[in-house]
């Protein structure tokens, strides 16, 4: 499962719109990853600041 670095996340929600399995949800200032995550790595590649870690 992709791991969020909550100290870096800017809460821009950009990754949420890319997740093919709808595993990401932004709750105001808290980005959550659900069990549905397949570690495809698309969100990791996108993140403007590198706040997501997992399979690249």
């Amino acid at each position: 499962m992709v791991v969020v670095n909550h100290y870096q996340c800017l809460h821009c929600g950009g990754c949420v719109g890319l997740c093919p399995v709808n595993a990401l949800t932004l709750y105001e200032l808290h980005l959550e990853v659900s069990e549905a995550c397949t570690e495809c790595g698309i969100c990791v590649k996108f993140c403007p600041v590198g706040a997501l870690e997992g399979t690249p």
Binding site: G14, G17, L18, T25, I42
Partner: peptide, 18 residues
Amino acid sequence: GVESKVGRWAGLKSLNRL
């Protein structure tokens, strides 16, 4: 917005491509 859930719940292909 870009993170639209409404589109997904309604079954629309609103997913963005990298």
